[in-house]
Design a protein around this nucleic acid. Sequence first.
DNA 1: ATAGATCAAATCAAAATGATATCATCTAAA
DNA 2: TTTAGATGATATCATTTTGATTTGATCTAT
Lengths: 292, 292
Amino acid sequence: MTELAELNYAQRERLAFIDFCLQFIGQLARADLVNHFKTGLASCSRDLTLYKELAPNNMTLKHETKQYYRTNEFQPVFEHNPEAILGSLCRGFGDGISQGINPSEKCIDATRLIHPDSDVIATLMRAINNRHAISCDYISLTSGESSREIIPHAIANNGQRWHVRAFDKKSKEFRDFVCTRLQNVTEIQKPIATMQAGEYDKQWHNIISIDLAVHPTVKHPKAIELDFGMSGGILHLEVREALLGYLMRQWNVDCSSNAMLTGGEHHLWLKNIVELGGLSCLKIAPGYKESE
Amino acid sequence: MTELAELNYAQRERLAFIDFCLQFIGQLARADLVNHFKTGLASCSRDLTLYKELAPNNMTLKHETKQYYRTNEFQPVFEHNPEAILGSLCRGFGDGISQGINPSEKCIDATRLIHPDSDVIATLMRAINNRHAISCDYISLTSGESSREIIPHAIANNGQRWHVRAFDKKSKEFRDFVCTRLQNVTEIQKPIATMQAGEYDKQWHNIISIDLAVHPTVKHPKAIELDFGMSGGILHLEVREALLGYLMRQWNVDCSSNAMLTGGEHHLWLKNIVELGGLSCLKIAPGYKESE
DNA sequence: ATAGATCAAATCAAAATGATATCATCTAAA
DNA sequence: TTTAGATGATATCATTTTGATTTGATCTAT
């Protein structure tokens, strides 16, 4: 009996592809494998035979259409990560290499309007890994353009934009910089000062426990419980302090102390806001009042 | 001279991995390849030699650290899609198969709080491909729980949730259903009526041209122009009518006729709102007034 | 009935891979 | 300073995987 673990990387990939197509498309022909992996026809037959050996009841060949079909007894051989599945469906699989783009008409991801430059990302990531500073020109929404030296230690998406978390030499504190607003980014090839390293970014490393509850104005709370996979109407999360405000804004979480926001767009309420005490990061959160 | 196109899928994948590591991490050791592809050490040496042949100036071996380093003359051999890059960095590459999860500390994607069940997605996708209806129990925010038969034709992410676009037999029109609010989903194995097919979903197929402009209240418009890659302060988009409202809400686009919203959270304004005429899909858009 | 498409299975040659041994280079500990 | 240990390169050979080709089966469409 063949075991999955015995197989090499390429073979497992092809079997995973078969598994995926059956589960999420329902059918599969040899030509699909040839197209995707640029492999020979004979290989496809072999792979299909191998898959049948691993999961005899997962598919049947219909000669009418010359395709394999998923059976009702289908049991996935591979665990497919839900987020990754949706990504693959949207992109039309890509080829695993350059993520080829055959965007699907049937699975459409949210429109991303902000696309960081990949050279900027590359330079940032290398600086992060090398523990180096970068010099750049930054355009702030409040103060406009200026040259900066910053020491980045992480990149994060706040739901809309990609930010880089970095020590800012100008203000001498850790801050967020929007990746698309960085220009002329250059890695500075020398060691950084100790206190500028990511380890000293308190707000980044401080993990905050929050309880999100269904907002009391919601008429059918079960819908929201299902959305967020809540048990007992509560979603418990552990969040970096530096990212908490963004999260609240992204999910439109009512951060008033008594869930007093109305308007219908708030599905969630930050239940333990009072216990958390004052947090400057919540300034941007819906309904948050600082002086309480 | 070896050409990229001559190589097989597995080899190209490994070379792409080398290329990616150099560009986005800056360094690479044989062990990284062994870990990722579960390959033999000798193979790694072969792959590295092959990569050197393809791009002689992209990396140098430093014996001090026994690693290869990206040179300043680096020219990527593969085109890496920006969105895919960030995904790979966040997930710690995965293994291309089950998208193995070694979440990175240095690259953090936005927190997804809503995770559609992969069996639901699978059933929906198969029904879409097979042009079949499904039966399910749906919990609506406004009207609560009910059994439905719907004919799905696409899945879309509206920035927060995954929706399925489907003909609803109950209301006899095309509507959006939140994937996480579907329960007991079953494919109905029989042909659908003509008018229920996706081709007849007018709002889905109607493509609307919109012009987004930097909101007049923004102090440093260049920051926003950079974010959205605008030329001349305008971002032109073609959007499905069915998704337009979500897009406006996702990006907080001021949809009032004269960009009258204040508050600082609006970076964009829908400049050609007047030309568009009344659109019911904009009901949920910030600042939209129906009777004008 | 027949041509055409697609699948399966078998065979053989070519290519890729894994295992192993030997050597080189550099670091870090003795 | 010397030496052990880690990691890299390279070469060789056996094994495995893959590609190409042929033959045969099944079904559709004409």
